[in-house]
Amino acid sequence: MKIDWLDKLQRLLQTLAFCLAVSGIQYAFRPDKPYYIPATYSLAIGTLTWALVDFGRHLFASSEEYGWPKGIAGFALPLVGIVLGYLGGTLLADWWCGVSSWDSAGRAQLRISIGITVVAGTVICYYFYVNGKSAWMQARMTEVHSQATEAQLKLLETQLEPHMLFNTLANLRMLIGTDPVRAQDMLDRMIAYLRATLSASRSTQHPLADEFQRLADYLELMAVRMGPRLAYTLDLPEALREVPVPPLLLQPLVENAIRHGLEPQVEGGHITVQARTQAGPKGRMLLVLQVSDTGAGLNAAPPIAPTAPGTSFGLTQVRERLATLHGEAGKFELAAHAPRGTSATITFPLTTSPA
């Protein structure tokens, strides 16, 4: 078993603090004697007992859950450690203080010392055992929560992929009847786009650069149908290219901008997708992803039936994925964009520092 020296240091410091507390209690009952005497005995016995038990447990097969020896060794080790720690620590303290605890004069105090050692040793061994068990349970809870979060994200993504596919097929169907040549070109682009998108979406996160590349593919696909009515700009700083984000996070926002912003206008419009950072609360850096368009705008857009494809499903998915990943720290805002159009903004804490 690999020894965690930082953990050992922490346990040693806790043991020393406990020993000083015990010696303080002893001194409170016997203030006629100098404090350094009970402190010396307490520190010597406690430190030696800790070393025997904490290092001795590595000699036995230990439970993966608690890091404590299995079976009879789990009971025998602290017992032997307390006995040997008491004997060795008492001899060491006797030598240091220049007295003998084993002569007739010290036997009355010896019985009290033995009782204190047994009680204190049992208490601190039990404390370390419970502390280790609690740490393991906390780690398991964190692992289970992480697995549940990942499962929730995969569920949301499996719902989003067919939604994106159906929207694309609906666009293709509209073009087949009016321009078969462009429909063929759009079909070829759609096959290549779906192959790349569905392959990339099998993981819960990918670099922001990949997300922008998928958006570029999708916008080129839409440009086949809309022609000069669709223009776009993708603004991704070099320092943010490797920042991890969930796949298809921005896709619903771009689809929404085209469907409700640009398509209702005869002249179409321009879509801008931008990534940037900003300072958050307590000095924490936030990632800001914004999709804005020069389309019809929130108030000017005609009402759409709730059952129409793409009306609210994609935006709902964005909100749910942000809540699953970041809780209240993940924010999604939809607002009017000056001088016209709509702006959709996603904000959440950066998990890694920009390059």
Rank of each mutant, 00 (worst) to 15 (best):
D4E: 10
W5D: 00
W5F: 05
L6K: 07
L12F: 12
L12T: 11
L12M: 11
L13V: 14
L16Y: 03
L16E: 09
C19M: 11
C19P: 04
C19T: 10
V22R: 11
V22P: 10
S23I: 14
A28V: 08
Y35I: 15
S42Q: 06
T49M: 09
W50G: 05
A51W: 07
A51V: 12
V53D: 00
R57D: 01
S62P: 00
Y66V: 11
I72N: 08
I72C: 03
G74Q: 03
G74W: 02
F75P: 01
A76K: 01
P78Q: 07
V80D: 07
I82M: 07
V83F: 12
L87W: 09
T90D: 07
L91R: 13
W95P: 02
W95G: 13
C97L: 15
G98C: 10
V99Q: 08
S101H: 13
W102D: 01
W102T: 05
G106L: 00
S113M: 02
T117S: 11
G121C: 01
T122S: 04
T122H: 01
V123F: 08
Y127R: 08
V130K: 14
N131A: 14
A135M: 14
Q138A: 15
A139W: 05
R140E: 10
E143Y: 04
S146K: 12
S146V: 06
A148H: 08
T149I: 13
T149P: 03
Q152M: 11
L153D: 13
L153F: 12
K154Q: 12
K154C: 06
T158M: 13
P162C: 08
F166T: 12
N167S: 14
N167D: 09
T168R: 14
A170M: 03
A170K: 04
I176A: 11
I176T: 14
V181N: 04
D188H: 12
I191T: 12
A192I: 04
A192P: 01
Y193L: 13
Y193H: 15
A196W: 07
S201G: 11
S201E: 07
T204V: 15
H206Y: 07
P207T: 07
A216N: 14
Y218R: 10
E220V: 05
P228A: 03
R229H: 02
A231F: 00
Y232T: 01
L234Q: 00
D235C: 05
L236F: 08
P237Q: 03
E238R: 13
A239V: 09
P244G: 08
V245L: 01
P246N: 05
P247A: 02
Q251E: 14
V254N: 10
E255H: 08
A257R: 03
Q265W: 00
V266F: 01
G269M: 04
I271S: 04
V273E: 02
T277H: 04
T277K: 05
A279R: 15
A279P: 09
K282F: 00
M285R: 15
M285Q: 15
L289M: 01
T294R: 08
A296D: 12
L298Y: 13
N299A: 15
P302C: 13
P306E: 11
T307F: 03
A308S: 12
S312R: 10
G314W: 02
Q317D: 10
V318W: 06
L322G: 08
L322D: 09
L322M: 11
A323I: 06
G327R: 06
E328T: 14
E328A: 15
A329L: 06
G330L: 05
K331I: 10
E333P: 00
A338Q: 08
P339F: 02
G341V: 03
I346G: 07
T352I: 15
T352N: 11
